[in-house]
Design a protein around this nucleic acid. Structure first.
Ligand SMILES: [Zn+2]
Ligand SMILES: [Zn+2]
Ligand SMILES: [Zn+2]
Ligand SMILES: [Zn+2]
Lengths: 156, 156
DNA sequence: TCTTGACATTGGAGTCACTCCAAGGTCTAG
DNA sequence: CTAGACCTTGGAGTGACTCCAATGTCAAGA
């Protein structure tokens, strides 16, 4: 099995495979007479394991270490630490999801604000900056400075 | 205002500020007699704008460009493109959230599988790999090879 | 036979957005 | 006088790839 075929089958780039090998995260496969890498089924399994560990967002170093341990059959250690590892990973993932949800909410507010204020943009730039900038400036932080400016001008 | 104070106030590191300046993402502030950077309120506003744009996860280059435009008062262009920009950003964020949720589900399944199978691990390593590796190997992909192995050995 | 095209090889540089460091200069309080 | 908190610079390191140039290999078609 050559590198391109393996890469296609497992959904990564040949560059990634060569990078893994170069940095020592994967064992070097045997070479054919022409110098091409020739992957055996054992190599394929090792790589598949590594990629699965990467898919649960383990850092490459940890994934590679674990993959080698498992592949070499030293999995008692791994077996006992694995649930804790997964638990940590889950809380990381959830924290990131919460972060992104908050970001999405902020974006939602900002979008609504910008759309709702389209008519008001004829007021033009405020003293310190234009209204669009003020909107970003403030909507992201939760309080709106450009509205205050607009209201003040509307009252005047 | 010196760099440390500004950094503390806006919640970034001094390294980040020097990096932004060095790479041209922020204008250079005036220097005091001793060579220290001296930030004016205008600089602070520009930086705050840039950081707000970064907080909605715009790439630094785009955030800096937009911040400069807005800060210079050329915001008509910005006003018209901003809703589209936000919309794109939102769909990116949502896609990432979905990805992470799928990951969380996979981790949940994997965890349940590992915990539920503790007794079965006495079966020991299968022919190709140990059961822990097999679990990662397969649970991440949705079908479980180690169970098949265990069942086969149980039947034998 | 020759050529075209798809594949492979290597080392090295680039990406993004910081982050850390060493070696030094400056200022304030005790 | 000294400790410490601050500031300066240029440069290297991070993670996980990604892209590139220059070159080599091989099978199929004209
Ligand atoms: Zn503006
Ligand atoms: Zn407003
Ligand atoms: Zn194993
Ligand atoms: Zn199983």
């Amino acid at each position: 099995m050559r590198i391109g075929e393996l890469a296609r089958e497992l959904g990564v780039s040949t560059d990634t495979l060569r990078f893994y090998e170069r940095e020592g995260w994967l064992p070097r496969p045997v070479r054919a007479e022409n110098g091409y890498r020739s992957y055996r089924s054992d190599d394929v399994e090792h790589l598949r394991l590594l990629l699965n560990l990467r898919r649960i967002d383990l850092p490459l170093e940890e994934a590679a270490r674990l993959a080698s341990w498992c592949h070499a059959g030293h999995c008692e250690t791994t077996s006992s630490s694995l649930p804790a590892l997964i638990a940590t990973r889950r809380s990381d993932v959830r924290a990131r999801i919460d972060e992104l949800r908050r970001l999405d909410e902020r974006l939602d507010e900002l979008q609504a604000h910008l759309v709702g204020r389209t008519e008001l943009s004829v007021i033009g730039p405020s003293t310190s900056c234009c209204s669009a900038a003020a909107a970003i400036f403030d909507a992201v932080e939760g309080s709106c400075r450009c509205c205050a400016v607009a209201n003040a001008e509307g009252d005047a």
